[in-house]
């Protein structure tokens, strides 16, 4: 059974690009359009192995989502990697303190993203 990866980004194009990269490697993709949608899908779908999450999104940002995941007893162990245009150390530190496992600055390199997913879902 293929592993499921939740991709949270308000850009349909980015979701598609990530989906293509991971889909070719055998992963199944679940999409969410913002942090609130992502949190809802992660809470409902217990087969999700990992989350890839943008930062700047409407309704709920990726950092807010990350911090809510960290507070949840049921989903806090699901690894999260941030995929964003942001590169400020303060934001990276905030995500790390909330439990994020990685930070990738867009545009992503497919091999790096895939390596991260392979490692974190192993």
């Amino acid at each position: 059974m293929s592993k499921r990866v939740l991709v949270v980004d308000d850009s349909a194009t980015v979701r598609q690009m990530v989906g293509t990269t991971l889909g070719q490697a055998g992963y199944e993709i679940v999409e969410a359009v913002d942090g609130a949608d992502g949190l809802s899908k992660l809470s409902d779908d217990h087969d999700i192995s990992m989350v890839i999450c943008d930062i700047n999104m409407p309704r709920m940002s990726g950092l807010e989502m990350m911090e809510q995941i960290a507070q949840s007893k049921t989903i806090r162990k699901v690894p999260v990697v941030m995929l964003t245009t942001e590169g400020q150390p303060a934001l990276i530190q905030r995500a790390r303190q909330a439990g994020a496992k990685g930070w990738i600055v867009k545009p992503f390199k497919p091999d790096l993203l895939l390596a991260a997913v392979n490692k974190l879902t192993a």
């Binding site: 942001e86 590169g87 150390p89 990685g102 930070w103 600055v105 867009k106 790096l112 991260a116």
Partner: peptide
């Protein structure tokens, strides 16, 4: 560089 550069990846 003060910020992480585009295309880079950090793992914790």
């Amino acid at each position: 560089a003060v910020a992480e550069v585009e295309g880079s990846a950090l793992f914790f």
